[in-house]
Design a protein around this nucleic acid. Structure first.
Lengths: 142, 142
DNA sequence: CTCTATGCAAAACCTTTGCATAGAA
DNA sequence: TTCTATGCAAAGGTTTTGCATAGAG
C-alpha cells in the first residue's frame, strides 16, 4: 500500500534501513482505524508477531510521525494516542464523554474563522487541535 | 476574595475541613495569572510558606478543580497546567510555537458553529478544548 | 475524641535510553 | 564490514498513594 511506499521512501531519505518490524508495525497500525496507544498497538502487533518489543513500537511510532504517517495526540484523560495521518485530511474530534466514541469531523467555516481569529491577534496560523466533548446519540437514547 | 468564599463553601458542602495550606495555596494560585504546573506552583507556595509539601499542592489542585476553581489543561508538549476558572468565562488558546506565549480568546461565532457541528452529528454539546498554534507577531518580526 | 489534612517517602505509571546482539546494505 | 535496528532491562519523569502525625470541628 501507498503508506508502505511512503515509509520506505522516508527511510531511504534519512539514510536508515528497512526492517521487518517496521513493516509489521505499519501493517498492524494501518489495520486499526481507532486512535491507538502504544500499549494497544504493541498488544496487537504481538498477536501476529510475538517477537516485537515495546521499545520498537515506541521508536517506530515516533519514526512514523516524523515521516508524516501518523500524528501523536494527547487527550484530556492523560492518554497519548496515535492516529493515521498519511493522505488523511486535517480533522478535529467529537468525543462522547460517556462511551468514548470519537468522530472525525471537519468544518470549513470553523477553519476559516480560526484563521481569521489568529490573524486578528497577529499570529501566523500553523495548526490547531479542537476536541468537542458531549454525549452521543446512542448514549442519550440508551 | 470571592474564590476563597467559594472554596470554603465547597469544603463545607463536601464535609471536609478548612485548613491553612489550602488557603495559602489558593492565595498563591490566584496571584499567578499564567497557567501553572504543579511544580511551579509548589515552588511559589514554598517561597512564602516553606512547610507545604508537594503532595498537598497536588491534592489541593485536584480539590480546586472539583470545586470549580480551576481547570486542568494538558498541552501538546506533554505538560499539565492549571488555569483559573472561577467566574472566568470559557475561552480557548492561541499558542506561539516559537516563544510559547499564550493568549486567551473567545469567538462566539466559532462557539456557535461548534455547537451546530455537534448537534449535526447527534451530540449533546458539553464542553470543548481548542488550541490554535502559530507564530506570534513578536516572533515574526524579531 | 473523631475523622480529615498534611508531609514524607515510596509506589505506580508511562516514557525514554543504554547496551549487547541481530540484521541491513 | 560497517552501521542501523532490535529487545531487554533499566533509568527518568511525573503522577498518585500509604502511612504516621498534626490539626480541625
Amino acid at each position: 500500500m501507498k503508506e508502505m511506499v511512503a515509509l520506505q521512501k522516508f527511510i531511504s531519505l534519512k539514510g536508515l534501513r528497512r526492517s521487518k518490524p517496521r513493516e509489521w508495525i505499519l501493517e498492524i497500525f494501518l489495520g486499526i482505524e481507532r486512535h491507538v496507544s502504544i500499549d494497544e498497538l504493541w498488544a496487537e502487533v504481538r498477536k501476529k508477531y510475538p517477537s516485537v518489543g515495546y521499545a520498537t513500537v515506541y521508536r517506530t511510532l515516533k519514526l512514523f510521525c516524523e515521516g508524516g504517517l501518523c500524528r501523536e495526540i494527547r487527550f484530556e484523560d492523560n492518554t497519548t494516542r496515535y492516529e493515521h495521518l498519511y493522505e488523511h485530511e486535517h480533522h478535529d474530534h467529537l468525543i462522547c464523554t460517556r462511551c468514548g466514541t470519537m468522530v472525525e469531523v471537519r468544518d470549513d467555516n470553523i477553519e476559516k474563522l480560526q484563521n481569521k481569529l489568529m490573524k486578528h491577534y497577529g499570529f501566523l496560523p500553523e495548526y490547531h487541535r479542537m476536541n468537542l466533548y458531549g454525549i452521543c446519540k446512542a448514549c442519550r437514547t440508551a
